[in-house]
Design a protein around this nucleic acid. Structure first.
Length: 283
DNA sequence: TGTTCGATCCCAAGTACGCG
DNA sequence: CGCGTACTTGGGATCGAACA
């Protein structure tokens, strides 16, 4: 089982942060990209030598270019595309383009395409914002305060997002503070947030809040899945699960648990909900 | 040992639609 | 109108090969 803590994953996904970490250990804990990759793997930071190299290179780009991504952030693919464009066209060419780009309202992909001089699909462009629910809800509330809109419907039109998405973001933002604090940075996604909302319906807000408080001290060593298991109530050996072959070539999933424990009903309801969400891959 | 990039897989956002 | 869900698809992560 791969154990990647929430904080470690955030660091690996951000090339600029990864470069800082690599430089900090260079000459002390490692002397090359490969050594760095091996040492970092021992710390749950799964970054290949190629990713480290990419991170170091993009971090050395001029601020005129990096500042364009101040709000959207940079991910591995962004770094890769920018490095390629820089190699092919020269860094000066990218700097010239950067000076003409207004980043307002543009996605990471759009900014990258503009910098690289690629054609950006116009009306067919599908905004694929990675904006997390808390950030989206904050934008909605800011607009509400300043009178930009008075409902989710209006806001959805202005912001160019689905109204259902705004409502969802608002619900997730309404989770207890103690719960939200367990998901630093960008870790609280719509998927995770929605699972927590469903769980709150089943177990109650106070129960979820208490789990969050109890998990604070061990959060650094927990994977996101382990954390979610805690919210469900599976930190111990609450259930015994078996897969069996039944008649007619069917597979049976068996759960054995203590019927006297009232929490088990909640646990099974939650697992049933998750299983319904599991879709077989088309590939 | 460093660097680049194609291929592939997976995740999550967007869309459409149904239900109460 | 608010919410839930099934399905589609774009974007990101990763592996591994090739080459300098």
């Amino acid at each position: 089982m791969i154990r990647t803590t929430i904080a470690a994953k955030a660091a690996v996904d951000d090339p600029l942060r990864l470069a800082v970490i690599y430089r900090a250990g260079l000459g002390r804990h490692w002397n090359s990209l490969r050594e760095g990759s091996i040492e970092l793997a021992a710390l749950n930071l799964k970054a290949s030598a190629a990713r480290l190299q990419q991170a170091v290179k993009i971090s050395a780009f001029p601020s005129e270019i990096l500042d364009l991504f101040k709000h959207t952030g940079i991910v591995n693919r962004t770094a890769r595309e920018l490095i390629r464009a820089s190699n092919e066209q020269g860094l000066e060419q990218l700097k010239i383009r950067a000076a003409t780009i207004d980043p307002a309202g543009k996605s990471r992909t759009q900014l990258c395409a503009l910098l690289c001089g690629d054609e950006v699909a116009g009306s067919s462009y599908r905004a694929h914002s990675k904006e997390r629910p808390l950030a989206l809800d904050q934008r909605y509330r800011d607009g509400l305060r300043s009178g930009l809109w008075s409902s989710t419907r209006e806001a959805a039109q202005v912001l160019g997002v689905d109204q259902a998405r705004l409502v969802k973001a608002s619900k997730i933002a309404g989770l207890p503070e103690e719960v939200k604090l367990l998901f630093p940075g960008q870790a609280l996604t719509f998927a995770v947030g929605w699972q927590l909302i469903q769980l709150t319906k089943l177990r109650g807000s106070e129960a979820i809040r208490q789990v969050a408080i109890a998990s604070r001290s061990t959060i650094q060593t927990m994977s996101q899945q382990e954390l979610m298991n805690r919210f469900v109530g599976l930190e111990g050996n609450a259930v015994d699960v078996k897969v069996k072959r039944g008649t007619g070539g069917k597979l049976l999933l068996e759960f054995h648990c203590d019927a006297d424990d009232p929490a088990n009903e909640t646990r099974l309801s939650m697992m049933a909900m998750w299983l319904r969400d599991v879709k077989p891959s088309a590939r």
